[in-house]
């Protein structure tokens, strides 16, 4: 019984997160301005991270947690670099 509940919940959660990722990438492609695209990328990677954690719950392995942590860190650095570029026109001053 509990396995059925877990399986359905994980499938629903993955479906919702996949939809959120799709919507974020729509905004990323549509723009209209660069800052919208960057926030789209930000939302996309956060949702990818959440997706990996749900995979971790589904398979019961903790490997996915580390992958999620790495995605989070790289995504943060990427977004900050892009935002900095938007403001100054260069990343390293």
């Amino acid at each position: 019984m509990s396995a059925v509940i877990l399986l359905t919940a994980i499938s629903i959660a993955q479906l919702l997160i996949a939809l959120a990722m799709a919507i974020a990438s729509v905004r990323m492609f549509r723009g209209p301005r660069a800052q919208d695209r960057i926030i789209g990328l930000d939302t996309l990677y956060i949702n990818a991270m959440l997706m990996l954690v749900t995979f971790g719950i589904g398979t019961g392995s903790t490997i996915y947690f580390e992958a999620a942590l790495v995605i989070g860190m790289l995504g943060f650095v990427a977004t900050v670099a892009l935002a900095k570029f938007l403001m100054r026109g260069e990343v390293i001053e």
């Binding site: 509940i5 877990l6 359905t8 919940a9 994980i10 629903i12 959660a13 993955q14 919702l16 997160i17 939809l19 959120a20 990722m21 919507i23 974020a24 729509v26 905004r27 926030i39 789209g40 939302t43 956060i46 949702n47 959440l50 749900t54 719950i57």
Partner: peptide, 21 residues
């Protein structure tokens, strides 16, 4: 409990994305 938290979290993520669009 796990199912409730999972669906709550992912629903909020989806609503956030919808609002973003």
């Amino acid at each position: 409990v796990v199912a409730a938290f999972l669906i709550f979290g992912s629903a909020l993520a989806l609503i956030g994305a919808i609002g973003f669009l």
